[in-house]
Design a protein around this nucleic acid. Structure first.
Lengths: 242, 242
DNA sequence: GCCATGGATCCTGTATACAATGAACCTGTT
DNA sequence: AACAGGTTCATTGTATACAGGATCCATGGC
């Protein structure tokens, strides 16, 4: 609990006022960046001290994070960073294939020039970042592409669902990605997607997305383990003290 | 605010202790049953008095209801029962067709005998209730069928999404259903679904669901109005006083 | 008659105090 | 040494107090 306290405090002082929204954003980002590993305890008072607010605000933020599936909130117990199981990981990917495929299909041929340009810019940025080995930047660009799809979805309900699923898959990718191989970069997938969208070929766009997500899932290490992570989360070995 | 206060108070006294979960359930149900029309103000203190708890509990309940899309919570403003627009209604139906169709397809041929029997019992119950003109009972049975699909979804993530979509479509059905015609009963649809599920025909099951939901949507009055409902919700004409 | 302005009131945002529950630890026994 | 029991501490659940913002209505000016 000590390591990130100072950093976050510094970030906080730079900003102005803190609301539950800010806490949600910061914690979500920290989980995504794996600065808060699964199972990490998130006591309300500690979080309150870190952000300089009282428990009321923290509680609201934690409730929201729970509804976003980022943390696990159980009655009378400390909130913890969620650790989705392997099974749930597979299910999340399947759900995202379904939803994002549909969004892409709906979007094919219906993108205005401005959005199209932004999409292309992000795709170029991703390739460039990959070229210079800047993995965090590459991830940012990749995420930006998918978020653009979600935001521009003609069906806002599906768009919101997709936003949620992008977050959840990002978390499990960080959790289960194999340590060694280069990264989760799938050369050309995003470019192919853009082409299909521009041509207005709905089914092609859907297929590109499905293939892209299947490849992404295949890059993960989803072999059944001895429930080490799950036990960690359930039995609650505290690992943040000295 | 007066009409439902006594009723709910009575229900409350019958039960034992009240938690935020209970409040969420009761309010959700009241919205579903149209005892709390769209736009109704839900001040924290009033709700607290009704349920005999303090604002802390009510706040948590309202936050959850907001994340379920049942109420609208805006900064520094009273929470109100949400009134989804016609456009959102269409989008919600489209999303549900996609998700429930997939769930049904996944479920085809994978139902155990017990669940199968319960499904069949609910389908029979629905027909019977329709026969004797008991509309509320008919709705209960119909909802039970779809909830069973969601609960038994092999993909739990999709199942949870479906649960959410069933709730949201129920709300908009209550909102936009035409007053005169018999009801939203589509004879045989559920029976056809059961048949497809038993035979293990995934694509048939998906198609039955899609057709069922399209028919359901077609029964609603989704003609563009003069934004009466939306204005009502936005301008906040209070209609619960005397 | 209509719009602007002021204050009173209602309601939410936040902090804090106290109660209650659960986890950790220490002790005594076998 | 292993285990059962009880005690202590950490942490959440709930209620309440105060501050700030929004709304509503009445009054005054155009």
């Amino acid at each position: 609990m000590q390591e990130w306290q100072e950093e976050v405090l510094a970030e906080v002082r730079a900003g102005s006022r803190i609301s539950d929204r800010d806490i949600v954003d910061k914690v979500r980002r920290a989980v995504l960046m794996q600065r808060l590993p699964p199972g990490t305890r998130l006591p309300e008072v500690t979080l309150g001290e870190v952000f300089g607010v009282s428990r009321s605000v923290v509680r609201k933020a934690l409730t929201r994070l729970a509804s976003e599936h980022v943390v696990d909130q159980r009655p009378n117990q400390v909130a913890r960073v969620r650790a989705p199981s392997i099974e749930e990981t597979r299910e999340t990917f399947a759900a995202r294939r379904l939803v994002e495929g549909e969004v892409a299909a709906l979007l094919a041929g219906h993108l205005d020039a401005a959005s199209d340009a932004r999409l292309a810019a992000q795709a170029r940025g991703e390739i460039e970042a990959h070229g210079r080995g800047d993995e965090p930047a590459r991830i940012e660009h990749s995420l930006a592409i998918h978020h653009l799809l979600a935001e521009h979805s003609p069906n806002r309900v599906l768009g919101a669902m997709l936003t949620d699923l992008i977050l959840r898959t990002s978390i499990v990718i960080a959790l289960y990605k194999r340590p060694n191989p280069a990264s989760c970069f799938l050369a050309g997938d995003h470019t192919a997607l853009l082409a299909a969208l521009e041509q207005g070929d709905a089914e092609a766009a859907r297929e590109v997305i499905r293939h892209h997500l299947e490849s992404l899932e295949a890059l993960l290490d989803l072999s059944p383990r001895e429930a080490s992570i799950d036990l960690m989360a359930i039995l609650g070995r505290s690992r943040e003290q000295a």
